[in-house]
Design a protein around this nucleic acid. Structure first.
Lengths: 237, 237
DNA sequence: AAGCATAACTTGTATATACAAGTTATGCAA
DNA sequence: TTGCATAACTTGTATATACAAGTTATGCTT
């Protein structure tokens, strides 16, 4: 299955991002797009719905689809996993606030990044990380529920790593780490829903553990020019 | 037009909120719901899509729709508009961070709360308000763009009221104020998309100005038992 | 020229049908 | 009993059609 509506979405989204269409301008009508892409109107509507959800356009009944001004407000972003260590080295106060903590079932891209079966229980964790009182990162972590059965808000706020080592008994060594920065507009970038934080690019950081096949996955929207990587190796055990 | 899919959505959402369906349980299949509600499958799918978007269920291809655990993590919430005054009276440090500032065109519920024509340019402002460093409110303001043509991030962070008085020349008196607290699950409550902040109830606060028909509208998710109202009258001009 | 009904657009909702893709239970074969 | 193909489910995608609802330009009427 090739997913036509996805292809149409990608095409239009890219055009808007490349500013080939100005804000305020009307997209071609649904019927026109239907002809142009040689498809049905419902398929076009599905693509437009996605564009609307992700803030590219706004649909107005009876009028058309208006291109919205792309939000370029930066949320300054620094490191990810070793946030505390980094902050300490810069003698800045650091704080983490848990916004959401809930269980889901693995599916779609979650399967891939966690390398688990479909339907596997998974923690989804939203955190706000602050440096000297300023919220600098909005991150979303995915964690195999089996490896952290008793995850609580307090644990999530402090250190998941400490919890895993002390209470679950996982010895953690950073055998393999991956940090990937993708440009906004890539297919993967669209999967994300980071709430009000509509930024420019996506960071993924996977930490592979020693004994177990536990993987942690972190994604966060940020501004590439302000982004500073955390050096995983600098973390003392 | 009666919007069947909306009615189906409401019904199922209410059942989940009332915990008549446990987390992990499967909803009846789409075909079954189609028969039960005497409608077409696409209409049922539309309702389920909404439920999925709002975190009530998760759809799994080939399996069914799983009821998700309802997120009850509190984001402690205090006042809204007169945030600074309240904080000062409690001698707490206060800070506001602008997360998003963008123009939209009035439509749907925005028309109602701002009492303006469809298509009127409108500012949509997302702010994070912090008390002693802790983010306590995530609020979304709507503002007629005509009344604040040169709204910037800095202005939004400091005080929109001061800006309106000094630069735009609007004399502000709180002739009429409305604060409405609605239970989650009401029809209006579903309109909101507050990012990662999935809380329990909705607050709306409308401030009516003197000379002009400018209205400000604030909505914010919060936990009713932790909510404290700001007394508008206490604000000194 | 001004006002107003209308026509010709736009998007929104609802229905029916078909097949693809993924999951799970059934039942036969070894 | 075990293994495996299959059937009978589930949701996902794509198409066609019809009408409702909202917007805007046209053109007649006054």
């Amino acid at each position: 299955m090739q997913r036509k509506f996805q292809a149409i979405y990608d095409l239009i989204a890219r055009e808007i991002q490349a500013e080939k269409m100005e804000a305020g301008q009307l997209l071609p009508s649904e019927n026109e797009l239907t002809e142009r892409f040689e498809t049905s109107r419902e398929t076009v509507r599905k693509a437009l719905q996605l564009l609307s959800q992700n803030g590219y356009i706004q649909k107005l009944q009876g009028k058309g689809s208006v291109v919205l001004e792309q939000n370029k407000l930066p949320l300054p972003v620094s490191g990810l996993t070793s946030f505390k260590e980094l902050a300490r080295s810069m003698s800045q106060t650091v704080e983490t606030q848990v916004l959401a903590l809930k269980q889901k079932l693995a599916e779609g891209y979650i399967q891939e990044v966690l390398q688990c079966e479909k339907g596997t229980p998974v923690w989804e964790l939203h955190r706000l990380r602050k440096l000297d009182g300023e919220a600098v990162i909005y991150d979303k972590d995915l964690l195999l529920a089996a490896c952290a059965p008793a995850l609580t808000e307090a644990i999530a706020r402090d250190s998941i790593y400490d919890y895993l080592e002390q209470d679950v008994g996982l010895s953690i060594s950073y055998a393999r780490k991956e940090v990937v920065v993708e440009e906004a507009g890539s297919a993967d970038a669209e999967v994300m829903d980071m709430g009000g934080y509509q930024q420019l690019a996506v960071v993924r950081s996977a930490v592979y553990l020693e004994d177990t096949t536990l993987f942690q996955y972190t994604e966060s929207k940020h501004r590439p020019d302000k982004f500073r990587f955390v050096d995983f190796a600098r973390r003392t055990k």
